[in-house]
Design a protein around this nucleic acid. Structure first.
Length: 704
DNA sequence: CTTGGCTGTATAC
DNA sequence: TGTATACAG
């Protein structure tokens, strides 16, 4: 439900940029011969020519719209070009479009805070940029105004259809007697025009934009003049814009709330809402929603543009409508395997490009059961800690499914095994990865600090952006932002072979231990799973089937990982030599800090030799897959015993780092979750059975 | 049985 | 925290 927020006192300049029929443009860029021709993108679907998910403007002129099927579109426009969405693993694969969206974001984020609102939309907060422009090169001082800016639509500006529209727009943009707010809007319009031109030049995509004083109005405006145009909303025209606007057109009112306004209150336009007092609306819809409605009727919305260039979750799903419903555990497993492969791939890519890891895996499904009674029941969502590696994710996902199915079927006596009809069907499954967080941004700062004090910049606020800048890992990748804000310094990691060797050997020790424990107690795979991952419960596992082992309790006990467990001794690696080498080269000033870091490895187990095999593998796989090398470089980042930190040392660190370390050291507080997750992630990564980041032929198995 | 398919965000309890 | 639901493109 919408939440009311007070509008900030200062006028802001907000833009909403919306790509024009984005999927179609992506396909037209890939197949330039389609440019200018009526085109639509259809989802892989044999039935009636597939469902249209994007329609180009040439096709719209023939009356083709997004709710048609391929056949209908052909009827309305026989010469239409229908392009199929890419398919991978027998399901639609939108990565082409996601990556294209990232290209656009990387451009649009250059001039101010940028929020990626969907695959093809962003919000920009251009307040600072507009103020700067007004101070330095105000529009009124320009002798030539950009053509793209002159094509702006200024809401409420007279003579829009007159013969000399551009002259009017130029005058509005450059008025010296305009009030401050409107001058800032004019600057915003110039900036957005420039950004849109850059998008076109660098990506070949056109987009439309709205420029206003808040997100709500900017979003409304961007849709008013499409394609490839922009619309400005001065304060003075807000009332006129809203009063005749159908409520359903407002974001958040396209669903039940909007319907309720129409049906219960007879409110058809946003202007109609003005007839209701705030109290009345609160009484009808609750305090939050009531206030929100009262505000939006007046064009008020204090919602901030969030600095977020990357998605908060990744998901992969598929539906199985009607007769295609999945009716056996085997078929469910098959599709879960496909979905997990895709998800794992995307998570790996997210890690490589953005240095983020996801913590939670969630399974959603829709089901029906023929055995009557409570067939209305919904299939419950289930989640568990996420383990990287397709094989592990597949195992976890299937266990989640079985747990959900058991609950869904309840007391119904139906079989869940075998290949015969079981009395139930699955009509949709999806898995998603959430709680995605950057790995140790604070430690990033620390590394920055030690890798070059002169380059250190104090900037722990914008985690994500710094993070991206910290790690220009795949320069050619389209979904990273390392090129952003390139004025910021970047770290130089010196990839030391020895680091890779030693850290890998540390992992191998853990592995050996794990295997031993497994052999010792093979009667209960679940418990083994749970214990061999550092005394905490990890993977959901119902496969062993016994009552004791099938409990899905992983969410309950917080991870019982302690820094003095065998964990850090066996997993955390010995970097003494490298560290000393590094320290020797950097040991100028900073004595006490460096002493601390120099001495911190004394408890680590020595590097033994039996792991050469793994070393080879890791080298091979890191050169092939890329991820492992990354992590090995980074591993030194968490190679500390937190409780060994001498408090006096902390004072010497920059404030941001102090903050982070104090959080770790705080008594009675578990180590930073991100550290635990990173450990987790790294250990999973070293599992030779994992298919993660390795194509089959390159897998460790084939290398040994 | 389903109600367009897939992906993503936000909010409430 | 995990789960359910609504909404959007």
């Amino acid at each position: 439900m919408p939440v009311a927020r007070p509008e900030s006192a200062d006028a802001r300049i907000i833009a909403h940029v919306d790509m024009d029929c984005f999927y179609v443009q992506v396909e037209q860029r890939r197949q330039p011969e389609l440019r200018g021709l009526p085109t639509a993108v259809v989802q892989y679907n044999e039935w009636k020519g597939g469902a249209l998910i994007a329609v180009g403007y040439e096709a719209r002129n023939f009356g083709v719209n997004r709710h048609m099927r391929g056949h209908e579109a052909k009827e309305a426009c026989p010469q239409i070009n229908l392009v199929q969405v890419p398919v991978a693993r027998d399901k639609a694969d939108l990565s082409t479009y996601r990556n294209a969206g990232s290209e656009v974001v990387s451009i649009l984020s250059r001039k101010g805070r940028c929020e990626r609102a969907s695959i093809d939309e962003v919000y920009l907060d251009l307040t600072d940029a507009a103020k700067a422009m007004l101070a330095e090169t105000p529009p009124e001082s320009l002798e030539a105004v950009d053509e793209e800016a002159l094509k702006s639509h200024i809401l409420g500006l007279q003579n829009e259809n007159g013969s000399d529209t551009k002259a009017n727009v130029r005058e509005w943009l450059c008025r010296s007697d305009a009030d401050h707010c409107e001058k800032l809007l004019a600057c915003g319009a110039l900036i957005v025009a420039e950004l849109r031109m850059q998008v076109l030049k660098e990506t070949e995509f056109t987009c439309s934009a709205g420029v206003a004083h808040n997100k709500m109005l900017a979003k409304l405006a961007s849709a008013l003049n499409k394609p490839a145009q922009q619309t400005v909303v001065p304060f003075s025209s807000v009332k006129g814009l809203l009063e005749s606007l159908p409520v359903k057109k407002m974001k958040q009112l396209g669903g039940k709330l909007g319907t309720s306004l129409q049906n219960e209150l007879g409110v058809n336009t946003v202007g109609d809402l003005l007839n209701f007092s705030e109290d009345k609306l609160q009484e009808l819809y609750g305090v939050n929603t009531g206030t929100w409605l009262w505000n939006i009727a007046r064009g008020i919305s204090g919602e901030e543009v969030q600095a977020r260039l990357l998605p908060k979750s990744h998901g992969s799903g598929k539906s199985f409508p009607g007769p295609r419903a999945l009716k056996t555990a085997d078929s469910v497993k098959h599709w879960l395997n496909q979905l997990c492969e895709e998800l794992n791939e995307r998570l790996c890519s997210d890690f490589e490009k953005n240095r983020r890891i996801a913590r939670t895996l969630t399974l959603h499904a829709s089901a029906f059961k023929s055995s009557s009674s409570d067939s209305f029941k919904k299939f419950p969502s289930k989640s568990c800690p996420l383990r990287y590696g397709a094989a592990k994710m597949q195992e976890d996902a299937f266990n989640l499914f079985q747990a959900g199915l058991r609950e869904y079927l309840g007391s119904c006596v139906v079989r869940t095994q075998g290949t015969r009809y079981n009395g139930w069907g699955i009509t949709a499954i999806s898995i998603s990865a959430s709680k995605i967080m950057p790995i140790l941004s604070g430690t990033c700062s620390i590394m920055k600090y030690f890798h070059g004090q002169d380059k250190y910049v104090s900037s722990s606020k914008q985690d994500e952006i710094n993070f991206i800048q910290d790690a220009p890992l795949s320069p050619s990748g389209s979904e990273n932002y390392s090129e952003l804000n390139s004025t910021e310094p970047q770290i130089e990691f010196s990839a030391e072979e020895a680091t890779i060797r030693d850290s890998v050997s540390g992992f191998n020790q853990q592995e050996v231990k794990t295997n031993t424990r497994k052999e010792q107690n093979s009667s209960c795979a679940t418990l083994n799973e749970a214990t061999d991952s550092f005394t905490r419960e990890t993977s959901p596992s119902l496969s062993s089937g016994t009552a004791n082992c099938s409990v899905l309790n992983w969410s309950k006990p917080p991870r019982e990982v302690h820094w003095d467990d065998s964990l850090d001794k066996s997993v955390i690696v010995n970097l003494k030599q490298q560290e000393q080498k590094r320290n020797a080269s950097k040991d100028k000033g900073k004595s006490s800090i460096l002493n601390f870091f120099k001495n911190r490895n004394t408890l680590c187990s020595p590097c033994t030799q039996e792991h050469n095999e793994t070393i080879q593998n890791a080298k091979a796989s890191s050169s092939l897959g890329g991820c492992c090398a990354e992590l090995n470089q980074r591993r030194e980042a968490w190679d500390y015993r937190i409780e060994d930190i001498d408090p006096s040392v902390i004072d010497e660190l920059p404030p941001e780092i102090q903050k982070e370390i104090r959080a770790w050291v705080r008594p009675n507080k578990r180590p930073n979750q991100r550290i635990l997750m990173l450990l987790d992630f790294l250990v999973d990564l070293e599992d030779p059975w994992s298919t993660r980041c390795m194509k089959p032929k390159e897998s460790i198995l084939s290398l040994t």
